[in-house]
Design a protein around this nucleic acid. Structure first.
Length: 491
RNA sequence: CGGAGAGUAGCGCAGCCCGGUAGCGCACAACGUUCGGGACGUUGGGGUCGCAGGUUCAAAUCCUGUCUCUCCGACCA
């Protein structure tokens, strides 16, 4: 089992980067901070997208598409929103190029300056709410439940493939409601959708909670989030769902007549997850041999490798393999037969392990003779012989077991890396020496949160929704606190 | 924006100190032997040495300038 990856223990960041490249997920493009998502990586993203899209539709949402460009003035309509995004916006100032006078290519035509600059969307609240203004007049137009799959651009200082790129793919839901209660309910519903997606599809346990004022989305009243713990002990924000109150409705003057014929501002939510989830997937399940894709998201759930010497042998094996593949298809399992003659079995084994294919079947003359087939589980890296005749029927249970097991291992790891801190010294040593989630009391002030960040690099990931009330004293200031919050160093 | 490193074949790198025919591994192509854990042999194709100046008979190598990228920080919903 020769590994092409540096071990996680030796160099976690190096391991991540090598895995992304070696598993053929993505690579740096010629454009700074932007990535090329390669076909295999994109196939995984498509599975994520499809599953989420189904869940959105099941909860009553429809898809639409809004412009990539946002007039600069729109962004500044909501004060805290522009403050949050202004420093990372790409701006379009001209609409034409012309030949350079010295003949060395093209230059921006100074004559073609836009009257108003366009911002490449960092998020679409402003353009969408300026549109909703025209769509909403009556309570009968509500709720408006729309999602958009799109790319967005945020000019970040430092990027990492999938985790933070200048351009990334995501979905953003933008909904409008007649009452605050309904909007809050929607915010929570979508947090539930994200939670179910993370846990049921990605096999990634998440903490659900509310962000503190410091970490809140620019323009939101409340930001709910799911937070996952990566194998290196750092937290990753995996999805957010915002209750926007009437901030955007007021900024864009979106009013409706209620049943009492009274004019009111609309209540809003927005919620999103991005290709960052790919990073979460890698860092939740990957091991030193490569990626492990949970079966429910795997582009290839089962790969079948025939092992043969002569052409006649291959023909015989191919026939059996196709039979198995057909039965897989009938059960909704994606199965690839890799009979590429230019690669040897050992090469293929290593390759599919790197790519995290959950199950590998190896079929050679010896198996046919014994009426068996070799089954290799990517998650446990174990192989066993199973009866050939019934192998296809055994696969669903195996895939389910892998899916369940991946979740359980991730959950156990999170449990093992979640600690309570009851004093400042204990807190500091937990954060610096063990990492993980640290549950601690906090006095509720931004100042304290800021000081803790400056001294330990840890931030409050969320105020957990499910945690019981428990009175205590802030670890830093000793002021009273009513519940523990979740601290961690974050990506 | 601060610190570090790197630009030489598709990828990874050596060569630079000490100027003189541009090299190695992987990958690629052909053929043969192989094929149950990343095969081996033979042959072959592929490079304006990031860019621009300068020094020199001669520059990947020395000098000056410049651009880009990566990593670590800072920043970041």
């Amino acid at each position: 089992m020769s590994s092409r990856l540096v071990s996680r223990a030796a160099d976690y960041s190096g391991w991540y980067q090598q895995l992304v490249r070696e598993a053929d997920l993505a690579e740096h493009s010629e454009v700074k901070g932007c990535m090329v998502i390669k076909p295999y990586g994109f196939a995984i993203w498509e599975h994520m997208r499809d599953a989420l899209d189904r869940m959105f539709k099941e909860t009553g949402h429809v898809n639409a598409y809004f412009p990539l460009f946002i007039p600069k003035s729109y962004l500044s309509r909501e004060a805290s929103h522009v403050e949050g995004f202004a420093k990372e916006c790409a701006v379009v100032t001209h609409y034409r190029l012309k030949n350079s006078p010295d003949g060395s290519g093209v230059i921006v035509d100074p004559e073609a300056k836009l009257a108003e600059e366009l911002i490449v969307r960092p998020t679409s609240e402003t353009i969408i709410w300026s549109t909703y203004r025209n769509w909403i007049q009556s309570y009968r137009d509500l709720p408006l439940l729309i999602n958009q799959w799109a790319n967005v651009v945020r000019w970040e200082m430092r990027t990492r493939l999938f985790l933070r790129t200048t351009e990334f793919l995501w979905q953003e839901g933008h909904t409008a409601h007649a009452t605050a209660e309904e909007a809050v309910e929607e915010t929570r519903r979508m947090l539930d959708v994200y939670t179910r997606f993370a846990e049921d599809y990605m096999a990634m346990p998440v903490l659900r909670g509310v962000k503190t004022a410091n970490e809140r989305f620019a323009g939101a009243v409340d930001t709910y989030c799911i937070e996952a713990l990566m194998q290196d002990g750092k937290a990753l924000q995996a999805g957010t769902s915002h209750f926007l109150g009437q901030n955007f409705a007021k900024a864009f003057d979106v009013k409706f007549l209620n049943k009492e014929n009274k004019e009111e501002y609309v209540w809003a939510t927005s919620w999103g997850v991005s290709t960052r989830l790919m990073g979460a997937l890698i860092m939740t399940h990957g091991d030193d041999s490569g990626l492990i894709v949970p079966p429910r998201l795997a582009p290839i759930q089962v790969v079948l490798v025939p092992i043969y010497k002569k052409e006649e042998e291959l023909n015989r094996l191919r026939e059996i393999a196709r039979g198995i593949a057909d039965q897989c298809r009938a059960q909704g399992i994606s199965c690839k037969i890799d009979d590429d003659d230019s690669k040897r079995p050992g090469w293929k084994f290593a390759e599919y392990e790197m790519k995290g294919v959950p199950l590998r079947l190896a079929l050679g003359p010896r198996d046919v003779e014994a009426n068996t087939i070799e089954v290799f589980r990517r998650d446990t890296q174990t192989k066993e012989s199973r009866p050939l005749d019934t192998i296809a029927q055994q696969l669903p249970a195996l895939l389910d077991d892998i899916q369940r097991s991946l979740y359980q291992i991730a959950l156990d790891r999170r449990t093992a890396n979640t600690h309570e801190a009851n004093s400042w010294d204990e807190f500091k040593s937990l954060i610096s020496e063990r990492g993980g989630f640290v549950l601690a009391h906090w006095d509720g002030t931004s100042e304290t949160e800021q000081r803790i960040k400056e001294e330990t690099k840890a931030t409050i990931r969320c105020i957990p929704l499910d945690a019981p009330a428990e009175s205590g004293c802030c670890i830093l200031t000793g002021q009273p606190s009513e519940r523990r919050v979740v601290f961690a160093e974050a990506y």
